[in-house]
């Protein structure tokens, strides 16, 4: 009796150690992965505090720490480091783009998801086809279209380019609208609500996740795009630039050895608003993208 008890105990013990070892390995593995994912970010943050203005090739951790890189790009602007100006420019463009793009995407998605009309499927196929052309190629033509509208070198032009074609990105949002029960809309219609009212008062309030997803995506666009922005804001006047052009410029051949650590500081500063937005809206973001993807 006691003997069997002892063996059971022993087996349990073994099972527990096995579990423990397994769990240890599992978490060790995760930790290694996490380190791989964090090393470059750590390098970014560390370098942004470095006293060395250029790239440090020899030491991962800089020899001296300073806040100078931040104070320099924030408060003493020369033509290379007009960070506050760039930040404002990008912020304004991002806000406008956010509003217009979100409206466009919702409108197109609702029309394709909830309205029935004859050219619907054709328009949808067409939009998929158009999406297959490489945007980079059309860039130069977009530039000349803007030039003909007298909108080059203006933030308005940039907003129009970002927002203009945003209607094409309706797919995920449409996938989400497709999940809104038809019965709900039918009922509202019976109550005499117009299509417009159904859109604004029933479907939109139900679509918070996808709304958030669309907002984040369109808000991030101006912070991350630099090719288009560089092409359109080509006057060479750096006070008109967006953050991405400015930071990209710092890594030019002639400047990189003097500005690399300030580039890193700029990179950290840009990440702050994006992280905040992300943390606040993460839950909806995931819901939106998965709900949309599940159906889209």
């Amino acid at each position: 009796m006691t003997a069997t008890n002892a063996t059971v105990e022993k087996q349990l013990q073994q099972g527990r150690t096995k579990k423990l070892v397994g769990s240890l390995f599992r978490h060790l593995f995760l930790a290694v992965l996490a380190v791989i994912w964090l090393v470059p970010i750590a390098w970014l943050v560390l370098t942004s505090f470095s006293t060395d203005k250029g790239i440090n090739f020899k030491n991962f951790v800089p020899e001296g720490f300073t806040l100078w890189n931040y104070t320099n790009i924030l408060f003493s602007s020369d033509t290379v480091t007009q960070f506050p100006r760039w930040f404002m420019n990008t912020f304004v463009v991002a806000c406008f783009n956010c509003v217009i793009s979100t409206c466009f995407v919702l409108m197109v998605a609702y029309a394709f998801s909830c309205c029935r009309f004859k050219s619907r499927s054709l328009l949808q196929n067409l939009s998929v086809t158009v999406n297959l052309f490489p945007g980079v190629l059309a860039m130069i033509a977009v530039y000349f279209v803007l030039k003909n509208l007298n909108l080059t070198n203006s933030h308005a032009g940039l907003i129009m380019v970002y927002a203009g074609s945003s209607g094409l990105g309706y797919l995920i949002c449409k996938g989400f609208f497709d999940t809104v029960p038809v019965a709900l809309r039918e009922a509202a219609k019976l109550d005499g609500a117009s299509e417009a009212r159904i859109f604004f008062q029933i479907v939109i309030p139900m679509s918070r996740p996808i709304l958030v997803y669309t907002i984040i995506n369109s808000f991030m666009m101006p912070w991350t795009d630099f090719v288009m922005a560089k092409m359109i804001l080509n006057s060479g006047l750096s006070e008109n630039w967006t953050v991405s052009i400015g930071l990209y410029n710092m890594l030019g051949k002639a400047l990189i050895n003097n500005y690399f650590s300030r580039f890193c500081a700029g990179g950290v500063l840009v990440s702050i608003p994006i992280s905040i937005l992300f943390v606040i809206m993460q839950k909806f973001y995931v819901e939106g993208i998965t709900a949309g993807a599940a159906k889209g």
Binding site: L33, A34, W37, L38, P40, I41, W43, L44, M220, W223, T224, F226, S244, L247, Y248, L251, F263, C264, G266, G267, V268, V270, S271, I274, S275, F278
Partner: peptide, 15 residues
Amino acid sequence: FMVSIAVPQFVTLLL
């Protein structure tokens, strides 16, 4: 793992 998403892609790539 999501920390890397917060930094814009062009910054991480150039870095």
